[in-house]
Design a binder for these strands. Structure first.
Lengths: 191, 191
DNA sequence: ATACTCATGTAAGCTGTTACATGATTCT
DNA sequence: AGAATCATGTAACAGCTTACATGAGTAT
């Protein structure tokens, strides 16, 4: 299994697909691309870049812009190798979710119908906001970056699905209909 | 905003919908229900139960079973109130995801087609496994626990969607077809 | 007898966020 | 002149997992 930290995977991957970058570049890239499925804060990015340099996976070039310091990192052969090992390793990938709206929903039986609908509405709005964030980040990926586009489409599809699910539930709750209506639809869909 | 910790929300909610429980009960409930969207380990559950007791949100009853210690926790009025406040508060709920397979996919352009397909396959298998876990936990929720059923259906639908998405992508990659085929389908779906 | 489940907890350590600190450059 | 952006970092803290430790009851 790969001994790269989560942040290291992100950094090596970013530098691999985007070319030599500064910590600040990567911070911005994360904000518009991986944020919703692999977050990283500056407090992690900068120290991890240093660590990867001292481990020989990255090299650093000082390229100040005027009097402003600037460290541009590139992958070494060892770094590229570590990246490829991680990408092709067969241990199961991390998948974690923290979904507070869904947790509220799980405990929502004793709420009033209005309060229940409000929980679902908040959940929908949240995923609509994420959807907007993804749409804004229209991937500049050409034919050489097919997978940037694929990952982007995945985000649209996934959060779009959730938004539709919420809308359906909001309707069912508002019309006092038991969400058995969901049963047929989703059971078939989820098979 | 609620000052309850993430684990506190889970514990109060569980005790609210399931009635008085031990830490061990809750640990098992988490394993079969919230695990995939709100995890909690024993190392968090036991200390947090104590904390909630000393904060007056839970009461503890010692009910040893033979020589085996057993602490059964119930919600106090204050605890129920804190739960209701959390459920109805309007600050945006936590939503976080960590999806390593998707991160790999984002960086997969330089892999061979076989390696690319393997990444997607691993992703699919992972969500199929989660789907199995959810299905096994068939919710015993009656008409008084409608939302247990709703949350369960959400899990089936969501992970089912991902599995279908992976299958489609696997096919497209295997057939050398550019996943433009996805474009029409998902763009419409995601609207 | 042995293994599994019930039951409770602690300690070490890793990961990650938030907030802060600093200062230069560029845009309005 | 002032605000926003570029650019790098640190320190304190919160959250969570893993591994360990302990022991009683129950099923095979």
């Amino acid at each position: 299994m790969s001994d790269l930290s989560g942040t290291a995977r992100l950094l090596l991957g970013m530098i691999h697909v985007k070319g030599r970058r500064t910590g600040y570049d990567i911070k911005r890239l994360v904000e518009v691309s991986t944020r919703f499925f692999w977050a990283a804060s500056p407090g992690q990015i900068y120290p991890e870049l240093k660590r990867l340099e001292s481990d020989g996976l990255l090299t650093r070039a000082e390229e100040p812009h005027g009097g402003r310091a600037r460290n541009v990192y590139s992958a070494t052969g060892q770094g590229e190798q570590a990246l490829h090992e991680w990408l092709t390793e067969s241990s199961d990938p991390v998948f974690e979710m923290r979904n507070e709206a869904l947790l509220k929903l799980l405990f929502a039986d004793s709420l009033s119908t209005e309060e229940q609908i409000e929980v679902v509405r908040a959940m929908r709005v949240q995923h609509e906001t994420i959807l907007d964030g993804i749409r804004k980040a229209t991937p500049p990926y050409g034919p050489d970056r097919k997978f940037g586009y694929i990952a982007w489409m995945h985000g649209l599809g996934l959060h779009g699905w959730v938004v539709d699910w919420c809308k359906q539930l909001e309707q069912d709750l508002a019309e006092g209909r038991a969400p058995q209506g969901l049963q047929g639809r989703d059971a078939a869909q989820a098979r």
